[in-house]
């Protein structure tokens, strides 16, 4: 009797986790489409990477039926996503920043022509922007 109750609890909990995870995955994708410029879209893709993926993976863990090899694999995927998604987000953002893409700033979303605190002296790829790096920055 007890086991049956537990089973239905796990079932409904994973149902909820799948629903919430799907919601956040869609939210991230929609933000990627709706937000006005590259730097704001970056935040939207973070929603999918963190909460959306984690909730769906937790739902799968509850559905794994106690098969601990599956649970270990899912946990490794989750841990790996947690470590790599900020690194790749940061490196895309840094590449855009060094490549001369200026963010929209302030409430009225004005294009700042020269971004604040940009370090002109360092960064090797900056020197390259003279010969054909501009397709990213001008549009």
């Amino acid at each position: 009797m007890m086991g049956e109750r537990m089973d239905s609890f796990i079932h409904y909990a994973s149902l909820f986790l799948f629903a919430a995870g799907s919601f956040f995955v869609i939210t991230g994708a929609l933000g990627l489409l709706r937000f006005p410029d590259f730097y704001t879209r970056m935040h939207a893709s973070g929603v999918t990477d963190t909460l959306g993926a984690d909730l769906i993976l937790w739902g799968m863990i509850l559905q794994a039926d106690g098969d601990w090899l599956l649970i270990a694999k899912l946990l490794i995927i989750m841990l790996f996503l947690m470590f790599t998604s900020p690194v790749s987000t940061h490196s895309i953002a840094h590449a855009a920043w060094v490549g001369g893409l200026n963010p929209l700033l302030g409430k009225d979303l004005k294009h700042s022509d020269i971004a604040p605190d940009r370090d002109e002296t360092k960064s090797a790829p900056e020197a390259q922007s003279a010969d054909g790096q501009h397709e990213g920055g001008t549009e």
Binding site: F38, T48, A53, T89
Partner: peptide, 19 residues
């Protein structure tokens, strides 16, 4: 429109493909 948007979208597609 920019190159970085495309790379970001590609990365997002990859994350969703894992799921």
């Amino acid at each position: 429109p920019s190159l970085y948007d495309r790379v970001l979208a590609g990365n997002a597609v990859g994350t969703k493909t894992i799921l």
